[in-house]
């Protein structure tokens, strides 16, 4: 009856490929879906990068000369790793919004009613978001480079720093998936900014914690975002401005430990939420 279906129906039944093959193939198809979104809406990626780019220019030029980096160093050099980490941190909102949009529109239900690998709904999102994050980092780094930011360490250090940034983003994918399945609708997801904003402000992104009131400085120093920021500053060879506190002195350790801990907590939570869809 149909040209396309003459052959064999497309289910994996009777196909020579195993489940593992389809888990990867379906994941890739889901990734392609996410990337095609950007292709059709390039404006969206501009919006997404708009905030960090504007922040770079605003903080770099408007406050740049007034802001002092404790221990010396150029504020713009100090700021850039913070901007990179902030962009990664805000990424969890994109994940959450994408997930809640798909779930309220019934797209996730359709995926679940299809013979595709159920894991692809989540893995496709994760891989797609990581690829997006790579693109974001490249664009931000290019912008930063254009206004004079340099890494003073070798190439391996810089690579390690970008790796840490992506690790943070990776751990937040699971927070985003969990939140996306938790909140009732895309409108509610907009309120996540209220969480994201302090999460990045009360950290070492813009200012060294040692310049904050004691209690706030402690919170900021322990913030997972700060650990990534401080560690990447070290790896890039940018001014670090450590206040000498334990979390600042062990930033490299924490910049791995925090994301690992977040992943360990939120992967099971997200999976549980996903399974709960069928209860």
């Amino acid at each position: 009856m149909s040209v396309a279906l003459d052959l064999e129906t497309g289910s994996d039944y009777g196909s020579s490929h195993g489940r593992a093959y389809w888990a990867v193939a379906d994941c890739w198809n889901a990734v392609r879906r996410g990337l095609t979104h950007y292709q059709r809406q390039p404006v969206y990626i501009v919006w997404q990068l708009g905030f960090p780019i504007v922040s770079v220019l605003l903080y770099g030029y408007v406050f740049g000369s007034a802001m002092k980096v404790p221990g010396g160093g150029d504020y713009r050099e100090f700021l850039m790793p913070g901007m990179f980490a902030m962009t990664m941190a805000f990424g969890f909102m994109n994940t959450a919004v994408a997930v809640v949009t798909d779930s309220t529109r019934g797209v996730i239900d359709r995926f679940r009613s299809m013979p595709m690998a159920p894991s692809a709904v989540v893995t496709g999102r994760g891989v797609g978001d990581l690829l997006t994050a790579v693109a974001e980092l490249l664009i931000l780094a290019a912008t930063a480079f254009a206004i004079g930011w340099r890494w003073d360490s070798g190439f391996p250090g810089a690579l390690g720093a970008f790796g840490l940034l992506l690790l943070l983003r990776f751990s937040l994918i699971w927070v985003g998936v969990w939140l996306g399945l938790l909140v009732p609708g895309p409108e509610a997801a907009g309120n996540l900014f209220a969480v994201a904003f302090p999460l990045t402000m009360i950290s070492s992104v813009f200012v060294a914690p040692s310049l904050m009131p004691d209690w706030l400085g402690t919170v900021a120093a322990w913030n997972p975002v700060s650990s990534t920021v401080t560690a990447t500053r070290e790896l890039f060879g940018n001014p670090v401005a450590s206040g000498g506190t334990w979390p600042e002195e062990h930033a490299l350790l924490l910049s791995v430990a925090w994301p690992v801990a977040l992943t360990a907590v939120f992967v099971p939570l997200a999976v549980r939420r996903f399974q709960r869809l069928s209860r």
Binding site: V3, L5, G10, W22, R33, R110, F111, M114, M116
Partner: peptide
């Protein structure tokens, strides 16, 4: 997109 997720392969999905 849905066709590929139904394991039709790109060519048959397009058809």
């Amino acid at each position: 997109m849905f066709g590929r997720l139904f394991h039709l392969g790109s060519r048959r999905a397009a058809l």
